[in-house]
Every structure is written in structure tokens, then in C-alpha cells.
Design a protein around this nucleic acid. Structure first.
Length: 584
DNA sequence: CATCTCACG
DNA sequence: ACGTACGTGAGATGC
């Protein structure tokens, strides 16, 4: 099955039609929302548009089929269709999703869009949507496509979906990723659909006030910078900035990239700030500019007119590691690291009588590293609830815990994160701003003090080279096609291969928690709204927050069970408040 | 549409 | 010798 609509955004999309396929090359299209097209004359008129079945009649007829326990429905990216139909009172079940089947089978190998899958696995190039709706300014919505042109396109989508299912279904078993698909992918569809449809309340007035303040601050900074520069220029143009700094002002250290433009990113400007006050002011301007354009302005536009809330969309098969990705808008990168940025979260609010509750896994990736690489000192430290970076520093630098300095701890923390990222001397050196050979000494020392690390990394890489993929603790496969390549591609692939099982296992764990969450909080006046990789955000009626925290924490802590027995504890921190800033 | 920059975990 | 920290999405510029 497939739906055709007027928008990629399911929250505003209107149904244009529904297609169904029952066997290969047997498919139909049921138009329900086509209007007369602007190009009707070119294609012989819209005689058919007047003959469409009434939308409600079609939905009433299909609902028993789409909800029948004994009729399997198949979609490609079915969360989309599920949400569109849910807005019309239909909860599609049971279902399979060929996009998610492909993700379980081929994660890391290629993307999982229908056109790509059709070409790869069926040897068939589907009709491009652009041939129907056009591109750019002249693009029209699907309901303006004449029915006689829409029909072959739409029916083909259902047909291709069915044929992909016939291809993938036996392979899931052969390749032994059925459990991954059935326990980590498919169940995410209704869970995420509910979260996305719930949305999160965002206070327009708060954002609007902030935008005004940011505009003033930007104008003041711009005036200061241009005064220092001695002439006006576009602060938002890295090209103009680079020419000003390095050609005109002759500041040292200008490095041109492969496109011939000077680099002017935060690292470059921070270094230059010791030479001249201008680069620091540019950094201040950039921070405010980013907050205004990407957050306070864009989020206002994302507020849904009907619900007054912001509805993100999560892609289940977007990230190679099993993480979700959030789009339209991205609510997984709302600022938090700086005081000024964190204030954006004051605009994410609970409605009257409710509060927001945030629960997040504490250091989940490091805990998983300790488990997976079998690091006794770190496992013990986590069991004892000790400061993991201080322990690392103590081991590495031979300094007793009671004499630990913040600098040594900071270095150990950077190394711990570096290990998770597939460390390199260069990367650590850049992060810590120390010479590369010193960074390499740190890494060597880490490997001596924690021999499990080296053994773990070697075994992951060896497995990737042999099998072409790495695995999470729950059996998710992430393919590493570049691992045996020659050149820099192999180094990338090696680091990605070391990171993927750790990041991916953390992703699996929070997925398991999310899938179990709805039944666990049933009866509570609470809704799960957002996921930010290691955090879940809920909205709950005031007074029920403690019960929610207790139940949600229990689910999150126990999420690996019974599939995996971790030999480190998982710890979940919780907070609540009127805004996301307070809850986090 | 590519590139640069920067927001998050 | 060479280029590198892992995983994302989005806005602004400029070709």
C-alpha cells in the first residue's frame, strides 16, 4: 500500500489517493483528492476528477482491511502513511516496512529510499516524481496531477513495494536479522508516529522576544566589527571574512582549503583572537546569528497552525549506526552547551497544569565500552559510582584520586571520548591542543593501562575485514564496505567501525526502552514527546511526575534485559520543570 | 547545488 | 607520506 498526498510533512498533508498492490504487476490507484490541474488542457482535461469516490466512503471501505489482524499490510517508509491515515482514524496493523527491512539487511551499504532499492534489487527504475509535479518554483502538489498520469506512478509505487517485500522477506531469515527487524525497527513505527503527532509546545512569544534581542545584539556587534575592519563587509560570508583577515589585515596563519578559500571556523578564529580583537567579535556575532536564524526564527515557523505545537519527524533508517535522526525541524540539536544557547530551551514548555520530564542515560557509551571491551577498572568504577574520568586519569598519569587535578581529568575525559570515536593521535592532539607526538604517547599509555581496549579494537577491525560488517550487542549489523579499501577511506572506515558497535548499542538500548515505554506508563496522564539519542522528554500532568520518573527510569535501566546481560549498571538521571531548560 | 559553518549526542 | 577524531541536520553564501 502507498498514499499520495499534497505534502512531505504528514502533519499537513492532504490525501490525494491510495494505491494498493496484491501481487506483482497487479496494482491499482484510488484517487480521492485530485483537483482540476493547471495543465488540464495539455492532457485532455480532467473529466476523471469529477468521478472520484468520496474520501470518507473509500476510508470506510478500506479501514477494516487496513486494520485486519489477519491481513499483512506492506509499505515503504510506512510511518508516513501510518500518520496520514491515523489522522483519518485508521491505525494500520499489522504491517511490514520495506525501508526498515532494507535497513536491517543493508545498514551502512546504501540508502533505503524506494527508487534506489527498486533499481538495486528489482532492476527497475520507477517513474520519477519530478515528471509529475515538476521542480522548483513551478512545482505543483500531487492533487494537481491529472489522475490519468498519477495512476501509473502511484500504482507502480505499491507494486514496487510489494516486490521489494517478496525479495527481502526470505533474506531477513537467511541473514539472521529478523529479530533486529522485528524488535528494533518495526515496533518503532507506531511509537514514533505517536510522539511526532503529539508534538511539543513551543512558546512563540518567548522566541519572538529572543529574536528581537538577538537582532539588536547582532547589529551592535556588526557595527563594532566593521569599525575595527575600517570598512563594511558581509559578516556572514566566510569568503569575505577570510580575505579581510588574511589578505588585508595580514593576520598570521591563513590556511586555504582545497577550494582555495581561507578557513575561518571557530578553531581558526579562536587562535587569531590572541592577535586581534576582531576575530573574537566575529565569533560572538556568529553565535548570536546561529541562535537567531536556526532556532528563534526557524522554530517560530515550525509551529503548527492547528496544534500550536512543533512536530518533528524522526527517520528510523537515516543514521548508519541505528540512531534516529530528527528533521523538519531538527529537535535533536537544540542548544545546551552555552548559557545563552540554553535559553532557547526556555521556549519549550509544558501546557497549563503539566510539566516536562527529562530522563537521560548517564555516560551510556562509556559504560558500554567498559562492558564490550571488558575493562575491569572501568567496570568496577561504574559499579562503585565513581568519577570515571578521574579514575582514568589516575590510572594513566599515576596520580592518586585525592590529588587529581582538573587538567589531568580533562585530558583523560578527552581520551575516553576519543577511544569511542576510534582515536587518532591527530584528532586527540587537535582536541586537546597539544603536540601530536604527546597525544600519541597518551594513547599508547592508555592501551598499556587498559589492554582490553586494544584487543577489543583489533577484534572489531578483524571482524569487519572478514565479514564486511560490525555488530551491536543486539545483533544490528552496520556494514563497512570501505574497510578493505586503500588510502584514506580505509582509515575513516576503521574509526567508524570502532565507533559503530558502541554508538549503535546505545541506540538499540534506547529504542528498546521507547518500545516498552507506552505499556509501562499506561494509565498515567503522560506522553513521550522527544528522543535526543540518550534522553527522553515527556509531558505529564502536574502531580504525576514522580510516578512517571519511577516507571520510565525502570524501563530505561532494564532496557537491555533479557536479551543482553550488561556487567555494568545503567544509570538514568531525571529532572522536571515547566520548561525543557528546567527539566534537563 | 556545493561549501562552510555550527548546533546536538 | 597523508589526512583523520564518531554520528547527525540546517542556514547562509556564492557559483
Amino acid at each position: 500500500m502507498d498514499t499520495e498526498t499534497t505534502s512531505l510533512n504528514e502533519m499537513v498533508a492532504e490525501l490525494a489517493g491510495i494505491s494498493l498492490a496484491t501481487a506483482p504487476n497487479v496494482a491499482c490507484y484510488i484517487p480521492v483528492g485530485h483537483k482540476s490541474s493547471p495543465t488540464a488542457d495539455l492532457f485532455g482535461g480532467d473529466a476523471l476528477a469529477a468521478d472520484q469516490l468520496p474520501l470518507q466512503e473509500v476510508l470506510d471501505a478500506l479501514k477494516p482491511v487496513l486494520e485486519a489482524d489477519d491481513i499483512q499490510k506492506i509499505g515503504q517508509n510506512i510511518k508516513y502513511d501510518w500518520k496520514v491515515l491515523a489522522r483519518h482514524g485508521i491505525e494500520v496493523a499489522p504491517f511490514d516496512d520495506t525501508m526498515l527491512m532494507s535497513y536491517a539487511l543493508h545498514g551502512g551499504l546504501h540508502n533505503h529510499g524506494m527508487d534506489e532499492l527498486s533499481e538495486r534489487y528489482l532492476g527497475h527504475v520507477p517513474i520519477p516524481i519530478k515528471e509529475l509535479i515538476g521542480t522548483g518554483k513551478s512545482q505543483v502538489t500531487f492533487d494537481r496531477v491529472p489522475i490519468e498520469r498519477a495512476t501509473p506512478y502511484a500504482a507502480e509505487d505499491a507494486d514496487v513495494t510489494l516486490r521489494l517485500w517478496l525479495t527481502f522477506r526470505p533474506r531477513l531469515h537467511q541473514v539472521k536479522v529478523t529479530t533486529v527487524y522485528e524488535t528494533l525497527e518495526r515496533p518503532m513505527v507506531p511509537v514514533l508516529a505517536h510522539m511526532e503527532m503529539a508534538g511539543v509546545k513551543v512558546d512563540r512569544d518567548t522566541l519572538s522576544r529572543m529574536s528581537g534581542a538577538f537582532a539588536q545584539k547582532m547589529a551592535a556587534l556588526e557595527a563594532e566589527v566593521q569599525e575595527m575592519a575600517g570598512r563594511p563587509f558581509n559578516l556572514g560570508s566566510p569568503k569575505q571574512l577570510g580575505e579581510l583577515l588574511f589578505d588585508e589585515m595580514k593576520l598570521p596563519g591563513g590556511v586555504k582549503g582545497k577550494t582555495g578559500a581561507y578557513g575561518t571556523d571557530v578553531n581558526v578564529l579562536e587562535d587569531l583572537a590572541t592577535e586581534h580583537p576582531l576575530p573574537g567579535k566575529v565569533l560572538d556575532w556568529r553565535q548570536v546569528s546561529k541562535l537567531k536564524s536556526t532556532y528563534t526564527d526557524a522554530l517560530q515557523n515550525a509551529i503548527n497552525a492547528e496544534t500550536g505545537r512543533v512536530h518533528t519527524s524522526y527517520s528510523i533508517a537515516g543514521a548508519n549506526t541505528g540512531r534516529l535522526a530528527s528533521t523538519d525541524p531538527n529537535l535533536q540539536n537544540i542548544p545546551v552547551r552555552t548559557e545563552e544557547g540554553r535559553r532557547i530551551r526556555e521556549a519549550f514548555v509544558a501546557p497549563e497544569g503539566k510539566v516536562l520530564v527529562s530522563l537521560d542515560y548517564s555516560q551510556i557509551e562509556l559504560r558500554l565500552l567498559a562492558h564490550m571491551a571488558d575493562l575491569p577498572e572501568l567496570k568496577e568504577a561504574f559499579r562503585e559510582g565513581q568519577d570515571i574520568h578521574a579514575i582514568t586519569a589516575s590510572e594513566m598519569f599515576g596520580v592518586p584520586l585525592d590529588q587529581m587535578t582538573s587538567e589531568l581529568r580533562r585530558r583523560a575525559k578527552a581520551i575516553n571520548f576519543g577511544i569511542i570515536y576510534g582515536i587518532s593521535g591527530f584528532g586527540l592532539a587537535r582536541n586537546l591542543r597539544i603536540p601530536k607526538d604527546q597525544a600519541q604517547q597518551f594513547i599508547d599509555r592508555y592501551f598499556v593501562k587498559f589492554p582490553g581496549i586494544k584487543a577489543y579494537m583489533d577484534s572489531v577491525i578483524q571482524g569487519a575485514k572478514q565479514r564486511g560488517y560490525v555488530q551491536t550487542l543486539f545483533g544490528r549489523r552496520i556494514h563497512t564496505p570501505e574497510i578493505n579499501a586503500k588510502g584514506p577511506g580505509a582509515a575513516f572506515a576503521r574509526r567508524a567501525a570502532i565507533n559503530a558497535p558502541i554508538q549503535g548499542t546505545a541506540a538499540d538500548i534506547i529504542r528498546r526502552a521507547m518500545i516498552r515505554m507506552d505499556p509501562a506508563i499506561e494509565g498515567l496522564p503522560a506522553k513521550m514527546l522527544l528522543q535526543v539519542h540518550d534522553e527522553l522528554l515527556f509531558e505529564v500532568e502536574r502531580g504525576a511526575e514522580e510516578e512517571l520518573i519511577a516507571r520510565a527510569r525502570k524501563v530505561m535501566v532494564a532496557a537491555p534485559d533479557p536479551a543482553v546481560k550488561l556487567n555494568v549498571p545503567l544509570v538514568v538521571e531525571a529532572g522536571c520543570g515547566r520548561t525543557w531548560a528546567e527539566a534537563h
